[in-house]
Design a protein around this nucleic acid. Structure first.
Lengths: 130, 130
DNA sequence: GACTATTTATAAAA
DNA sequence: TTTTATAAATAGTC
């Protein structure tokens, strides 16, 4: 009980810190950012950085991965990392997701990349004007 | 060119830092965590913390919001915040996303409005002190 | 929520 | 990459 309270406090402080850093990253480096947390009591928090709609397709892809796929991939990643390091978190590059193996998907990635480039140009213009 | 390189370096360092903190949050507080970034060159990175599959339904909800809904919401939030201050990030509680019933949504928007007003008061205080 | 001692992240430079 | 000086985050406390 007292433990949960302490954990909530810790969570709250640290979440604030991470959110702050994510905002900085989003603005300083002009990159798309999206963070998702659950609190110790289960309450979800979403943060989406400015002009981060380019992430939508990625989120969609992620959500369309089945539990099984995700778990499979996690297991694979963990195994890899364990061999290499002693870590067991899963951080991976979306470009290497298992379904990204056919030509159509590759084309879509190209389009997405172009979209992001266009956005960068757009953002640069806005920054110069302001 | 040199600018992009410097930005990439900064992004890389900071992303590492944020990821580290997210991992700590995930383990120390036993909470679900998912982070999504694009690099300055558009390369996406996903991090999903250990045992964070509970976030799936939320990701699904987010991905099922149309681009238009998300943009509408963002535009609204940005407008509000700009009027109040110069901020324009969007951080919001998933429980208040527009998939709720109309009546519920209205109520939640009111709550959000109140929250923003509270923020204004807070910021005014800070401005007076400084 | 605010304060302060301490730990940690980061930028700059090698 | 590693170092190091500076800035920032956080735990503990109230």
């Amino acid at each position: 009980m007292e433990d949960l309270k302490a954990r909530q406090a810790k969570y709250s402080k640290r979440k604030t810190g991470i959110l702050k850093k994510a905002k900085e990253l989003n603005i300083l480096c002009e990159v798309d950012v999206a963070l998702l947390f659950s609190s110790p009591s289960g309450r979800p928090t979403l943060f989406v950085g400015q002009n981060s709609t380019g992430l939508s397709s990625i989120l969609k892809r992620l959500s369309n991965m089945s539990f099984e796929e995700r778990e499979e991939r996690r297991a694979y990643t963990i195994e890899m990392l364990k061999k290499i390091y002693e870590n067991s978190e899963s951080e991976f590059d979306l470009l290497s997701l298992p379904h990204a193996t056919n030509a159509d998907t590759l084309k879509l990635y190209e389009d997405e990349l172009q979209e992001l480039k266009d956005k960068l140009v757009e953002k640069s213009k806005i920054l110069r004007i302001n």
